[in-house]
Design a binder for these strands. Structure first.
Lengths: 363, 363
DNA sequence: CTGAAAGCGCTTACAG
DNA sequence: CTGAAAGCGCTTACAG
């Protein structure tokens, strides 16, 4: 049975009958059906009918559109308008954590809200691929580009994007004045420490990452600020460093135990996972013997550890939303900022059972 | 400084000088520069020059294209060709696990290899959104659609896709003859059990999921088949069920211990994680006291557990590649299969330290 | 209030 | 071997 031959095409119409096969209906067809001109149909479609076309004509056109199941050809619209409704979305890694997916999820939601569609490119951090992707985006006349990374770090915006509205998401470029949206690492670090402080802890370790990134500086600052605010003296003996993964958390466990703290802020959830394992291997209980706080609120992991891990939420979804928002705003207003705008999104704390409430006499 | 005004435009040319701002160069410009007609340039661009255009003309055109930095307008090409080079990619969940990202990663790689670009839509399993997404795809004249899910299950292909080449990835529709690519759950289950069998284990528990899905049936079958093949009698007392997450693994631990097995195949890695926790809480060691096998080889988790978890790899990346491959094949050959094709991709075992090698006298 | 016409940037018969 | 012309499906001045 060849495609396109459908038994029902020769049958009477049932109430549930579908509109004609949506494909090849064009403006011309609608115009013919409505007994009007192509221009008029176009005007109606684009809601430019105000004070131009009689109510009756509008009604006729609308009826024809509906009956024929007309859908405008986006390619043609893009061609004649000189710009599509595409937003290009570049990400450097989509296949390891759900982080990129969360950004995409937010970006798409916002894009759709404005009638835009996301063109996606996963570059795997490869410059060749990135170049190719951006070229393709430009060929398709994207309105703008979201350039995002799976973890917060500095990047340098590709030259190819120079003449295209661009917003950086989860990254920033110190040498460019492109708008960027990033997580507020400092306030996040503060929130992490405060969960412990508010629970009555005074001796709180901080395990930083060994890797160079804004999170390394920012979260530490936040931790220190929180201590300061609580009247706790900072103590270098309580500040550690480790690889930002499970192994790192395991490796640093002995030092943390030796330091005599009652709570510890880990650079991320993976580190906390490793620390959990190491503590348990020593017969220690969380939070009875040690309170632990992570960072990232990583899906599948943080909420399901034993006990569930207190942590700080990375606002990936919100970064995606804001990114698209700012991009569209810049496109619409054609505003160009002489100085770079950096928007920081808050990282809210997520309190779970890994923190022991201390009856501190100091509180 | 207004956009577009660049100091260097009035400066002499340096060797590194960029080609003119890539944007508004059209075929006509190239034709003018090359001293030929638009048709000729088009022919050259599309490599249809064979035996039609003189070498000299081709050279002139190529030179002009290069000098002007000409890039064809994909929108115009799509319009005149009646079809774009878009492939629509629908996924139901991109923000929780990296699974969808892995499929996308593979799909994109293969799409690009064929000069196609991925249009992406995250539906969050919402039918409204799905409808909207597919409509948008159709408006943009996608060549075809990949319809994918984040975990393997049955779906029903949306009616809107009836006239569009479609391939299901990581899901299948029993009521449609659309081609689908799925993981081979049965062989995966077999591989899981065989890791333990090959290590000398004879009493092997199987913890199935309580949720209805192909994985539930297939992996169990594979487990039983592997036992059978190894001459081990199946024993209903060793088959359990639990929720497919950490809590499920924790909950089932007592029963597993009571059953006296030396190894256990878990429905997935998350379950294995919970089981790890439960065993450790009882002072038991893995693999000394219990060998554990997971399923999924979930990023960030499996390889980083303590000890690293033996598991079975889900072929998400390969599903993405194959999916696009089959889609393009169907589009090119315009083949329509009367019966549905289902392609199963292998789930290879990943052997890690969670399995104890038994000196079994039986081996 | 409405339609005829030009044009967006391409491709592809068709004629030379 | 090459060019003029029609047309893809739209939008938008422009003229009535």
């Amino acid at each position: 049975m060849a495609k396109g031959h459908h038994a029902d095409s020769s049958m009477g119409s049932s109430p549930m009958e579908r509109k004609p096969r949506s494909s090849i209906v064009t403006l011309k067809d609608v115009a013919a059906a409505a007994g009007t001109s192509v221009s008029t149909v176009s005007l109606v479609m684009n809601h430019k009918s105000e004070a131009r076309i009689s109510k009756e004509t509008v009604a006729k056109v609308l009826k024809a559109i509906d009956e024929l199941g007309y859908r405008p050809n986006s390619l043609a619209q893009g061609l004649v308008r000189g710009s599509s409704n595409f937003i290009g979305f570049v990400t450097d890694l989509i296949a390891t954590t759900p982080f990129a997916g969360q950004i995409i999820s937010g970006a798409q939601k916002e894009a759709w809200r404005h009638g835009c569609v996301l063109l996606i490119a996963n570059t795997e951090g490869n410059e060749q691929i990135e170049r190719y992707a951006i070229a393709k985006f430009l060929d398709h006349k994207v309105k703008g580009v979201i350039y995002s990374t799976w973890y917060h770090h500095e990047v340098s915006v590709p030259d190819e994007l120079e003449h295209t509205p661009t917003v950086l998401v989860n990254c920033s470029d110190p040498n460019s004045n492109v708008t960027s949206v990033i997580p507020d690492e400092r306030r996040g670090g503060m929130a992490a420490a405060q969960m412990l402080i508010n629970a009555g802890h005074r001796r709180i370790a901080f395990v930083n990452t060994t890797t160079d990134a804004p999170a390394r500086v920012g979260r530490r600052e936040g931790y220190l600020y929180a201590l300061h605010e609580a009247g706790i003296h900072e103590d270098n003996a309580l500040m550690f460093e480790a690889e930002p993964d499970q192994q790192g958390g395991k490796d640093i466990a002995p030092e943390i135990l030796r330091s005599g703290v009652t709570g510890v802020c880990c650079h991320n959830d993976r580190m906390a996972m490793g620390l959990y394992d190491a503590l348990r291997d020593r017969g220690l209980k969380i939070p009875e013997n040690m309170s632990v706080v992570g960072f990232d609120n990583q899906e599948v992991i943080a909420a399901n550890m034993s006990p569930p891990l207190s942590t700080v939420q990375l606002p990936h979804y919100e970064l995606g939303i804001q990114g698209v928002n700012l991009l569209l705003e810049e496109i619409d207003t054609r505003k160009h900022y002489a100085f770079s705008r950096t928007i920081s999104m808050d990282c809210p704390p997520v309190f779970r059972d890994s923190i022991r409430i201390v009856n501190s006499s100091l509180m």
